[in-house]
Simulated scan of single mutants.
Amino acid sequence: MYERKRRKPVSEINVVPYIDVMLVLLIIFMVTAPLITQGVKVELPKASAEALSEDSKPPMVASVNAEGEYFLNVGNSQDTPMSAEDLAVLVAKQLQQEPDTPVVVKGDGRVPYNEVVQLMVLLQRAGVPSVGLMTDSSEQ
């Protein structure tokens, strides 16, 4: 009758489905990674707030008043309001001269939270690695 041919067992793994799954996961991670990393980096204190040490450099203080005007304690015009672009240029220039200068944000208590966040984003774009928040002591 008919003679059956014996087939040898195939010992190969088909990796095509694994490659397809890997490529789909790669695309998902590439799309979601930028969405996860949005925001302003702020180093939150791990304990109660402490004042800057006496031997540290004097900080650069970027301020926003109740009217939303920006100020910086660097240069001759510390009491005159400046635009956001001028503030960013001045901060970047100061950080080029002294890169380890601490930067502190001083916001009026009546300023909307959005104004303070916009100032922090502005400082981040100017190259400030970390920003501190200035507060008054609660004890009076």
Rank of each mutant, 00 (worst) to 15 (best):
T37Q: 15
A126D: 02
L44W: 03
Q97N: 11
V89G: 08
L123M: 09
K46M: 06
V117Y: 06
I19Y: 02
Q118W: 02
K93D: 10
V117K: 11
E67L: 15
A51K: 07
V10D: 14
R6C: 08
T32F: 07
A88I: 11
D100A: 15
I36V: 15
I27G: 05
L25M: 09
G39Q: 09
V117M: 00
V16H: 06
L123A: 11
L35S: 13
F29N: 13
E139S: 14
S130Y: 02
S137C: 01
Q118K: 12
P99K: 04
V128M: 05
V15D: 10
V21F: 02
V42D: 03
A49D: 01
M1R: 07
I36F: 06
T37G: 13
Q97I: 12
E115V: 03
A62I: 08
I13M: 02
E12I: 14
L90D: 05
V104D: 00
M22D: 12
D86R: 14
V103L: 01
Q140D: 15
L133P: 02
D20I: 12
T135K: 04
K41H: 07
P81Q: 12
A66V: 11
P45I: 04
L25T: 07
D86P: 11
L26G: 12
S56I: 04
L123E: 11
S77P: 00
A33T: 15
D20V: 12
V104K: 04
K93W: 03
I36L: 14
V116A: 07
L25E: 04
L119F: 08
Q78Y: 04
E85I: 13
D79F: 07
Q94H: 10
R6M: 04
E115Q: 12
L123R: 00
I27F: 10
S83T: 15
D20E: 04
N73S: 03
N73W: 00
S77Q: 14
Q97S: 07
F29S: 11
